[in-house]
């Protein structure tokens, strides 16, 4: 089975703050890591490979430094990797990111299965996986909590639905986004890290894409624009709910209802 896993480099901690005066993101620039949700996708790929054979390719998009997450994937057992890196991809929103990734996937070859993590810890949208599947015109199943069976033509998975789990059989090629905790991700192996230290990571730029229209990438290809970022209001107020037990209970019930917790 030929599997592609999308991975992203994200800030080492999501404990970023916005400077209330300048509106700038304050974050530790050099502390980065692989998006924790992508580890579940990669682990899923590694288990499938162990069971069914085949090869795993990881694809990332970002600055040259994002090679680190591809090397990390090698140390976990991925076979190949590629990085989409081009200033013209910069400032991409979900749509432009998904488009560039789908173009990158097409440039890399044919895959039976594309795996994505549920979301990233920086963007938090959970939208890139489904959008890639649209551009690749393949079926997609999101919120996969379990893989039941894999045959040559199909795989059967459990999908988390609002009130139930649906057991879905999907034909290859397809895209799955997997839930957190589908499998406990393994740690990178020192042995593999050493063995893959010299493995080449090809860099793909816009010139390697099938669609070379700059307007479909980066900021130009992004319908959404961030007008402003600001820190969240924190709930620091304290309210005393006083009175008799009955009055207190009434006040609390009203409060909970106002908070939509009832």
């Amino acid at each position: 089975m030929n599997i592609l896993v999308c991975i992203k480099q994200v800030p080492g901690s999501s404990e970023v703050k916005v400077d209330p005066d300048t509106g700038l993101l304050i974050r530790d620039g050099d502390n980065v890591k692989m998006n924790p949700y992508d580890l579940f996708a990669l682990e899923t790929a590694l288990r499938l490979k162990k069971e069914k054979g085949g090869e795993i390719t990881v694809l990332s998009m970002g600055p040259q430094a994002a090679k680190a997450v591809i090397e990390e994937a090698f140390a976990m057992g991925a076979d190949h990797g590629a990085l989409l890196s081009d200033r013209r991809f910069g400032g991409a929103d979900v749509l432009a990111t998904s488009y560039a990734l789908s173009q990158g996937i097409k440039a890399l070859g044919d895959f039976d299965l594309i795996l994505c993590g549920k979301q990233t810890t920086d963007g938090d949208t959970a939208q890139v996986g489904p959008e890639i599947s649209e551009y690749l015109e393949i079926p997609a199943v999101a919120n996969v909590t379990k893989i039941r069976e894999v045959t040559d033509e199909t795989m059967t998975v459990e999908m988390d639905m609002p009130n139930q789990l649906e057991v879905v059989e999907v034909a290859f090629p397809c895209l799955l986004t997997v839930e957190k905790d589908i499998y406990q991700p393994r740690l990178p192996s020192y042995v593999l890290k050493k063995a893959t230290a010299d493995r080449k990571i090809p860099i793909y730029s816009l010139d390697d894409m099938d669609d070379q229209d700059e307007n479909n990438y980066g900021l130009s290809g992004s319908p959404t624009q961030v007008k402003k970022i600001f820190p969240p209001e924190t709930n620091t107020t304290q309210t005393m709910l006083e009175g008799t037990a009955e009055e207190q209970a009434k006040k609390l019930t009203t409060t909970l209802a106002d908070l939509k917790l009832i």
Binding site: G12, A75, P188
Partner: peptide, 16 residues
């Protein structure tokens, strides 16, 4: 590894 370890796993992020 020389002493017979099966592998050496690296934990380098907060989650790990």
């Amino acid at each position: 590894l020389k002493q017979g370890a099966v592998d050496v796993f690296i934990s380098d992020t907060q989650e790990r």
